[in-house]
Amino acid sequence: MSEAVTALAGATYEGAVTVADGGLTGMVQLRADLADAAVATAVKAATGADLPDRRRISAAKEQRLLWMSPDELLILTDHGAAPDLVKRLSTELTGQHALVLDLSDARSRIRLSGQGVREVLAKGAPVDLAPGRFEPGEVRRTRIGQIAAAFWLLSETEAEVICFRSVAPFLFDWLSTAARPGSLPGHFR
């Protein structure tokens, strides 16, 4: 049986910031009313994690729960674990008005690392990325240049970006251009 492949095939760019294929990632989409306590209970039972607050990320074990909208959650997990997670969630949500889908292949994950990840993102996203205004634990859906994307910080020197698979090579090239040596403005400190 063939193994799944990413759209970026392990690409890496080393510049002022390193841009790298984030690799295969399990991504499970839940559409349900996140304000519904029964949904929170089901999600907790299936993942062990509490529902994230608005625009936040919650986590349990290897899973991260990204708040995408008041009725959409994206759960990141190991690529191989996604089908089981879909089953667990669907079971826990039986009887609820909810949609659970394995979208592990729909999006690509790109990792940024190094001093200056905030500035690379700020070249393309109309978002206040200053320290104190955007911190680890928050997820932001916006655009990077012309590409719809979501991103979050893991630390001051690490960020992750997700975008649709078909534009991942384009966004990878865009981020690599934004990360080329000597090109950071040095605005954040």
């Binding site: 608005r54 625009r55 909208s69 008041p70 109309p126 932001r140 916006t142 655009r143």
Partner: peptide, 11 residues
Amino acid sequence: PYCGVDAEETD
């Protein structure tokens, strides 16, 4: 009003 973001027009 849904996600609380002060979104600029390009978003």
